[in-house]
């Protein structure tokens, strides 16, 4: 029985190697498919630029898109700093030995990861001001809402990334630090967190790029960000492609440098060039 089974599998391997889908064919197939799609996208973009984009309209709407870009950038910088900082504390609370901090942070993550960001924006924008009437401004509550909702939402994701990063640091690191007479907080700060940070870097970077794209949801509370500009221009001119091209350029001009920044930070935390 065992013999016939292994015989069959050998036969299958041989068929695989000699058949249509051997390694070389797969490689060529992969390369052709990806270049086909890339070429398709490039051609489509060129076609759109040539036939759909009005350069006169482009010139008149560029200033408002630059303003929107500056606004998005401002929201992103503030929410990024706040969400990464508080996310680190959420992550630390998740791995703490105290039941109460552990429980609170777990519930926090469950809620903010488990409900849509759009819902959270509505809660802050519409829900909070009615709880304490008169406390919040009727005008200008949008921007605080944006910062609060994005920070609370992304701190949960950063917290999970940091928790995973801490979990991946071997227990021996904490033991070695403690055996030298360093306290828990000191050992965390000097030994565990720098390593956890590198472990978490890719996931945190990923999340912060998503944060940039999440600013597009702010259009529902009438913040004059990029999608809002698209809607305004499109409804006035019925030209979809001219503003869409600007929207794409604007988002990519933030997200591509952010990706490079994450790569740079990962490279900097190379510690003698291991293979990780």
């Amino acid at each position: 029985m065992a013999d016939s089974y292994s015989g069959a599998s050998t036969e299958a391997d041989t068929t695989g190697a000699e058949g249509f889908l051997d390694d070389e064919t797969l490689k060529i197939l992969g390369a052709s498919i990806s270049s086909f799609f890339a070429l398709g996208v490039v051609l489509l973009v060129l076609y759109i630029l040539a036939t759909q984009v009005s350069f006169t309209l482009l010139q008149t709407i560029i200033p408002r898109f630059l303003e929107a870009l500056a606004l998005v950038l401002g929201i992103v910088v503030v929410s990024s700093v706040l969400s990464v900082t508080s996310g680190i504390f959420v992550g630390l609370a998740r791995v703490s030995n105290t039941a109460i901090t552990k429980g609170i942070s777990a519930a926090y993550v469950q809620f903010f990861r488990g409900t849509p960001l759009l819902f959270q924006i509505f809660v802050v924008y519409f829900g909070i001001p009615v709880l304490w009437p008169g406390t919040f401004p009727i005008q200008g509550w949008e921007l605080p809402t944006a910062i609060i909702a994005l920070t609370l939402n992304h701190a949960a994701y950063v917290g999970e990334a940091v928790r995973g990063g801490i979990g991946a640091v071997p227990d021996g690191q904490m033991e070695a630090a403690r055996s030298l007479g360093m306290g828990y907080v000191q050992s965390m700060r000097e030994v565990v967190i720098p390593q956890a940070w590198r472990n978490a870097l890719a996931a945190v970077g990923n999340d912060q790029i998503i944060l940039v794209k999440d600013t597009s949801l702010l259009t529902v509370i009438a913040i004059p960000e990029l999608m809002q500009q698209f809607r305004l221009v499109n409804s006035a001119t019925f030209d979809p492609w001219t503003p869409l091209v600007l929207v794409a350029i604007a988002y990519l001009s933030i997200t591509i440098p952010m990706g490079r920044l994450v790569e740079y930070l990962e490279h900097r935390a190379d510690w003698g060039g291991d293979s990780r």
Partner: peptide, 9 residues
């Protein structure tokens, strides 16, 4: 320690 536990960073 058996596994050295040097700080890699």
């Amino acid at each position: 320690f058996q596994s050295f536990n040097l700080f890699p960073h």
